[in-house]
């Protein structure tokens, strides 16, 4: 599950050639317009400014930094992730709009790197969220970062980079790992399960024992729908 190659690629079933062109166009645009939320978790972040500014200039590839997870497409994890940070990373990841991509930069995100003995560090990032791309190195040079991003762009254009679907389809797996780390009453404000239902992204692994555990203590997350309330009864106290 954690390996990228195992993620099944679902072929577009539509026969209409026009829609094929359209899909092609959309994928192209997605690949050429990437907004990065660089979540500066560790030392790797220091390599991003050169990647962005005049020396390497990411913008020529259509890559821009963004501030809020809502606006971003790419979550850059730039270094070791402590458990406390991981909670925020997951929260942030879930708040991003799909399609979204996770790039782990530096060795620490691959296997904990020099922190692999630490009790407070998450070793493997892809246990908690699907990672599209790792850029190894301690730290990787901006060239490597750009090269990685370009690889991601190619994957997006070819339609391979859809790990974000995996998060919906195998939510139970990721939630289980998260619960193992954060305790049983772990909950994020984003309601992944209803979202998966809403967008028809349900998979076999969406539900499982961990999601059941979540449902037991979950605080309600339904959106506050507009209502007139004329036909509602007074709450009986």
């Amino acid at each position: 599950m954690s390996s990228i190659n195992q993620i099944p690629v679902i072929e577009a079933k539509r026969g209409n050639p026009l829609s094929k062109v359209f899909d092609e166009l959309v994928r192209f645009c997605r690949s050429r317009s990437l907004f990065i939320l660089h979540y500066c978790t560790g030392c790797g972040a220091i390599e991003l400014p050169p990647a962005m500014t005049s020396r390497f200039d990411m913008e020529r590839l259509g890559i821009q930094p963004m501030v809020s997870p809502r606006q971003a497409d790419i979550l850059l994890i730039t270094g070791y992730v402590s458990i406390k940070t991981l909670k925020r990373v997951i929260l942030t990841y879930e708040q991003m709009g799909s399609p979204k991509y996770v790039i782990g930069i530096c060795s620490c995100t691959v296997n904990g790197g020099m922190y692999w003995q630490s009790y407070a560090t998450a070793k493997k990032l892809d246990e908690y969220m699907p990672v599209d791309l790792y850029i190894a190195g301690c730290m990787p040079r901006p060239e490597a970062v750009i090269a990685g991003l370009q690889q991601l762009m190619n994957r997006i254009q070819s339609g391979e980079a859809n790990s974000w679907e995996d998060y919906f389809r195998n939510y139970d797996y990721y939630l289980g790992n998260q619960q193992k780390l954060f305790g049983d009453n772990w909950q994020t404000p984003t309601d992944i399960i209803t979202e998966a239902k809403h967008y028809n992204l349900m998979g076999e692994g969406t539900f499982g024992e961990h999601t059941r555990l979540l449902e037991q203590h979950q605080k309600p997350l339904e959106a506050l729908d507009m209502r007139l309330g004329h036909n509602l009864k007074e709450p009986t106290e």
């Binding site: 809020s68 997870p69 809502r70 909670k87 925020r88 929260l91 942030t92 708040q95 994020t188 404000p189 984003t190 309601d191 209803t194 979202e195 809403h198 967008y199 309600p220 997350l221 339904e222 959106a223 506050l224 729908d225």
Partner: peptide, 17 residues
Amino acid sequence: RSKRVHQLDNYAGGHFL
């Protein structure tokens, strides 16, 4: 399509609301 979310599902700099 868009999906309505709960008002506490909101950006707060990584803070849990």
